[in-house]
Design a binder for these strands. Structure first.
Lengths: 237, 237
DNA sequence: CATTTAAGTTAAAAGATTTTCACACAGAGG
DNA sequence: CCTCTGTGTGAAAATCTTTTAACTTAAATG
């Protein structure tokens, strides 16, 4: 990363599950952010009043004030980007109806890579609006260019029309272009930490991805590393 | 190794079979890592809470909490790389359905050399992401260069297209370029510790390897040590 | 030399893994 | 509700790898 020269961004997390808290914290710290975790939303709010941060991640289901309440309170005093976490099924419907200012939300179990991508994109965006930086440098590989803000992938001006999973997987492979990635790893990073999907789910997604790449006439290919996983590569046209 | 100047990496292993524990331990220690072995996962987890390590190797079938549970617990508090070991057949199906965060897994009996390679690759990767080291120095011998991250071998820009076994065998010979390696040794290190394959398996693999080397026009050759095994060498062109 | 033992070659069999395809299922949006 | 889309699964088909077994060739030995 080249623009990490400025101050590291500060991120607050609130989740009553110690495990999740740590998981998110370590993932984001690896990206170079400064992360402080709280065991409930009220403590986070207190801290925020004392010292505002650049982004907030809030679990909804927590002792004390619900994440929703904290979100509203935060939103009342700040436009800090907020990401909400919800347990699948339990609150999902409830949430989708309400939108009191969170900028995004994830259902558990979420994909660490996707969460990280989203955080990066959000921070990039606020970073951009303050100075007058114009564009984000897209992720480029051979004839493929990816806009992580728009979540689009282009090949020669043509949109690939990737779905969510495909996009995340593709970006992950691209970011690890210098090595082979195992199926296991993909499962954990893309699908999430306690998923219960078969390993072949990766194959299915890769297959669809390959198809779209081929259709678009890209020279990029997802090579198979037999008995292991995949690796990004390109034809020499 | 040139970048071993930093602190030695710390690796935790949990396996109830004393033999396996020691086998892995000695292999990894020979690579310069600091290794601590535990007889079950719970002890490992305790130790990890007290002092985190850089990589974890977990057997699944163990007294006390299953390796799976420990893996999930670890994953919840850390993104430390985890490698799981499973007995073939016994739990494989069971496993394939579950994937709670291990970064990789091996089925017993596994190849010590491959396990070591994988460990090295993983640690190299995390090592790389912290500072801004760019490339990994490839393993080079004569006109052959090997990228252990991509699992590829090149000769004059040309990919050799080695299979898994071929690759592992080749790397092993290359790393022991200064001596002859017996068939027995290869069988143990590459094929695994309690395999039941015929000795001829090595010959078949070496034959294919030689063929691919010749086809690629490499000057590297695998010499035969009569009545013993093989040794790497090269033509003086 | 003849003999014995080891190594190299093959091709076929056996084994694994990946790819493909069709279908089921769930959520999103009319 | 119904339809559409995105996704995961199962099973067959296609591939790719590895092992085995039979046979040939080469090296040592007396």
């Amino acid at each position: 990363m080249s623009n990490m020269s400025t101050l590291p961004k500060l991120i607050y997390i609130a989740d009553d599950e110690k495990n999740i808290r740590h998981l998110i914290k370590s993932f984001l710290e690896k990206e170079g952010y400064q992360v402080i975790a709280f065991e409930n939303g009220d403590k986070l709010f207190e801290a925020f009043e004392a010292k505002p941060c650049d982004l907030v991640i809030l679990d909804i289901m927590m002792p004390g004030n619900s994440g929703l309440v904290v979100c509203a309170k935060l939103r009342a005093i700040s436009i800090v980007p907020i990401i909400m976490l919800t347990a699948r099924d339990t609150e999902e419907d409830y949430i989708s109806g309400i939108s009191l200012g969170s900028d995004d939300y994830f259902t558990k179990p979420f994909s660490p890579v996707q969460l990280t991508m989203r955080v990066k994109a959000m921070l990039r965006r606020v970073d951009m609006s303050e100075p007058e930086k114009n564009g984000v440098s897209p992720l480029i590989y051979a004839d493929i260019s990816i806009c992580q803000d728009k979540l689009t992938a282009h090949c020669h001006e043509k949109e690939l029309g990737l779905t969510n999973t495909e996009f995340t997987l593709f970006v992950y492979l691209l970011e690890n272009r210098d090595r082979a990635v195992s199926r296991e790893e993909l499962l954990n990073k893309i699908w999430g930490y306690d998923n219960a999907v078969e390993t072949r789910a990766t194959d299915a997604t890769v297959k669809r991805l390959r198809q779209k790449l081929t259709q678009a006439g890209s020279e990029v290919l997802i090579e198979t590393v037999w008995g292991y996983g995949f690796r990004i590569g390109a034809n020499q046209p």
